[in-house]
Amino acid sequence: MKNIKFLIIGVLFGIILSKSEVVSWYRIYEMFKFQSFHMYGIIGSAVLISMVFMQLFKKGTIKNYWGEQITVKEKKKGTVRTLVGGTIFGLGWALAGSCPGPIFVLIGHQVFPILIVLLGAVLGAFLFGLLEKRLPK
């Protein structure tokens, strides 16, 4: 059960996303309307502080649990993939008012219609897997 720590990290993440209202459809709408700093503050400060961590990983100041250098997986390159894929994702993010993390948090909040969004998301991922070889990179 060495993986149980990830369950605990997930619990903390679910609580953070709940308490900061990131799981609220309304907060996402407000963000895309540029009517509040809340979401920008959360994402922005998370990115800035993570940037510091990333530098410390690189320098070796922070090592992993086993005392090894921490490396970050490189994201797949490709302009079409990221821009078009990103735009498709953004359409869904705004409509459902939730991205993959919050979908799971809302299941915990017993918002059961979100299960249909999850079903759709799994179908979407499946569709992508089928088409993957034929899509422009």
């Binding site: 994702f89 991205c99 179908l123």
Partner: peptide
């Protein structure tokens, strides 16, 4: 609901990640 989900699932995997 299902359409929003499909956009999220397809888009995030095509892009290679989400938020």
């Amino acid at each position: 609901l299902i359409g929003a989900g499909m956009l999220i699932g397809f888009g995030s995997r095509y892009a290679g990640g989400c938020t």
